[in-house]
Amino acid sequence: MVLLFLVLLSLTFITLDFRGDGGGITGGLRHGVESFFSPIQSLVGAVVEPIGNAFSGITDYGALEDENARLKDRIADLERRAAVGDDVRKELADALALQDLSFVGSIPTVSARVVSTPVSNFEQVIELDKGSDKGIDVGMPVVTAAGLAGRVTEVTSHRSRVQLLSDSTSAVGVLLPTSNERGAAEGEGTDRDLVIDFIEPEVKVASGEVVVTSGVGGSFPPGIPVGNVAHSKAVPGELQRSVTLRLSADLARLNMVKVLQWKPQR
């Protein structure tokens, strides 16, 4: 009886979510819970990240003898400090690199810090510490010094969520400048190269070729670096060339990013 009740309740929530298209009651619940846990998430995340790094460092040394306990503690302490130092240095380097983004042109930008890495194993979504109060809106592109990272999908007053290009529902219109061929790069999940669709089989595509946004579809401004061609080959019988794209931005180690205040043209 309990199970039946809870199943029906779950299905009611799912129906409400579909009908409200992510907004409505379920959207309000989501925002409420997120806002409540955001400070905890930021605080715990900031503490855990360097400890996690130090922990990884310690495990690399393998098993130590009992009599070396004092030395082990000392190593752990030093590595913890080193990890914290590395994080600060990386953040500073990221912030400096973001000051000179030639590909952004005259588009105004907002700098933001990544406060949450993907929680789910099925989505590539991060959270930024800035929201609509700083002029961020849904659809705005997010870049690192290396190139495009994703786009804003949800915004609250102080936070925004970004769907990374590696997300399996993400797609971006791209241009191969050498051949002037346009395609669509689709995400394939964590640590996987993107797949570029709609490239004609006879088009010559070299490995390492730079790929930029095409601006087609109006979701992203044209000319932003996306990555480099990783593999390219014509498959007999296929109507399009098999091309994979390695992203320029290191999505696994995002720290500081810039949100381009550019509205999608739809």
Binding site: L11, L29, V119, S120, E123
Partner: peptide, 16 residues
């Protein structure tokens, strides 16, 4: 479900 974009209630149904 509050921290993902999958339908709200899907994790609740599964975990239950």
């Amino acid at each position: 479900d509050c921290f993902t974009r999958t339908p709200f209630g899907l994790s609740a149904l599964t975990y239950c």
